[in-house]
Design a protein around this nucleic acid. Structure first.
Lengths: 341, 341
DNA sequence: ATGAAAGCGCTAACAG
DNA sequence: CTGTTAGCGCTTTCAT
């Protein structure tokens, strides 16, 4: 029972009384065989339960039909949605995916990187790497696409949501509704969130608003505690309410937006009448929350599609006419219940 | 750039003036070489940037150091938690994981199964398969562990939470608090939920409660709509409230429990004063909800650990002293805010 | 302590 | 239309 199916092409050849080559041709349908031998061989393949050994094919062809996907945390809804879609797309193109959960640790990334190279993966999708000037990955020269990577490095293929435009949309929404604009963010600075913040500031500047820094609250949270009460948040909200002007708070992501709403409810502040809240991401928090959260939705499907398209293109092109690029995937404002209408 | 690292053991041998065999021995540290040659060879390995080709090793040794993980939906929190942990454990034991998102479709399972066999995976973890009397998997004879599989099949290794005991605990909790017991479930009958229901019924019987069937509401939901208003739920809750006795509702899982709480809030029914709600799973719904949901928590870490332990054991044992078994992983009642104290 | 050679399963010239 | 042969990169006898 504990044994692998070890029928080889040789066995098939012998059993059907033809040469190995002929069997190979029939398996790969590369022509140069007669209908009758084909039938005969296919018959014995079924009889013997032969299964092609991709390991041997890969070794011979120097192509593993395997890609590595590095992801910080697969239990994170945003990442898992991307991974799922990528895996799907790659599979339908004949590739199997090796998933690597890096936890944003450089050591783990390095270890995985090593293993993936040894397995001779044909390509790599790296989601939101911890590595900046990564020697680890840099030395490898296989086709690679980054998702949500800080583009300070040069000739790479990077796919990410258009965080800046998303930030603009959110901020303009607030301003267009005559709301007093605020931004609440977390201390962890990833390139994606910083883009959103930059947009917020830019739009405010355009509207001649000067006290920008005082309109930004930066929360110190670890991912575990984001649901807990944060005193600084409470007092900040109370300050905002005391201004007696309906406020529009841009939560840097849906989790933060959710937190703001919960805090407001605790403090008996009406959402959306007294404060409107707008999030970013479009994850299940925006859906689960009561009221549901108006948010800037990232298109995970599109992110995956673009990434896979670029990767497949690279993997199938021997010549290097695949020039480095940064692809911005559009985001979308979805209005729900947490903002004034 | 688009080329793989193609330094082979042969190149290393040539460059360091020894035989291939010696290099192999040094790489695998199988002895029979001198300190000096070792040093020399390791030096050239580094110089040339040699990386062992696992494809060739696998072909030669008939062992791929790769396992397949079949999962219905990786964006599902419960599954992704298990997958993450499994991947971790397997990686630290030298195995790479190929993730297969089956969507519970038999066709996809079959397709994946085929590919995994071709890749000569050393083992398989199958989470909650769609397949019952699967020929697909059955024909394969590689080490396999099932998670949450209906155990109507015989000589298999199955790991699952102790759903029955969990159901008992929940129901007894309700009864012990003198609450009027009800169960709200979904129409989709998986073996795990049916165990919970069975426990509910058994405990009620033990307590001489006769009108059991009328105490069970079966909701017809697809996964997309579970957050929507369900009229039948509303009227059922109102009926329960009209009985003027504090009720204890066992939601078949946290999503259902969450739905119940939302519905209650809509109907101005106090949770937990008028109705207590207890869920099952321990996913983020139980944490996000206000009030937080008292629930029976499944131990995903343990589920993963047991599965990997069994799989690794099978993979490393040539002799078949690994007898089929059904491992029940204990669940735990975690009391939060949705039940009377 | 080291090496030559066979072979894992397969594909691809090349030769009929 | 079919077969012979070499070789992908590696491990493993079997010699020396």
């Amino acid at each position: 029972m504990n044994k692998k199916n070890n029928v080889s092409i040789k066995d098939v050849a012998k059993a059907s009384g033809v040469s190995i080559t002929t069997v190979s041709r029939i398996i790969n349908n590369t022509g140069r065989f007669s209908k009758v031998t084909q039938k005969k061989v296919i018959q014995t393949i079924n009889d013997l339960g032969y299964e092609q050994n991709k390991l041997a094919v890969s070794l011979r062809s120097n192509k593993s039909n395997t890609v590595g996907i590095m992801v910080p945390d697969i239990t994170n809804e945003f990442y898992s949605a991307i991974v799922k879609k990528c895996e799907q797309l790659l599979f339908s193109n004949g590739y199997s995916s090796i998933i690597c959960n890096t936890e944003r640790s450089s050591e783990r990334e390095a270890a995985y990187s090593q293993v993936l190279m040894e397995h001779r993966v044909d390509g790599l999708i790296i989601i939101s790497s911890a590595i900046d000037d990564s020697k680890v990955i840099k030395t490898t020269t296989i086709p690679t696409v980054y998702i949500d990577r800080d583009p300070h490095s040069h000739n790479e293929l990077i796919v990410s949501s258009d965080h800046y435009t998303g930030g603009e949309i959110a901020t303009k929404f607030i301003l267009n509704h005559q709301l007093n604009p605020f931004l609440i963010m977390t201390k962890t600075k990833t390139s994606s969130t910083m883009e959103r913040v930059r947009a917020f500031k830019d739009v405010l500047k355009e509207h001649q608003i000067t006290d920008i820094e005082s309109r930004i609250l930066s929360l110190d949270l670890t991912s575990d505690k984001f649901l807990e009460t944060v005193p600084s948040l409470d007092s900040y909200l109370q300050k905002i309410v005391s201004l007696k002007k309906p406020a529009g708070i841009f939560g840097i992501n849906d989790n933060v937006a959710y937190m703001i709403i919960r805090a407001a409810q605790r403090l008996n502040i009406n959402v959306p009448k007294t404060i409107s809240v707008i999030g970013f991401d479009g994850n299940s928090f925006s859906e689960i929350s009561a009221p549901k959260i108006t948010t800037i939705v990232q298109n995970t499907t599109k992110l995956a599609q673009e990434s896979c398209r670029l990767l497949l293109q690279q993997m199938t092109t021997q010549d290097k006419d695949v020039s480095p690029a940064i692809i911005k995937v559009p985001v979308q404002l979805v209005i729900k219940e947490s903002t004034v209408h």
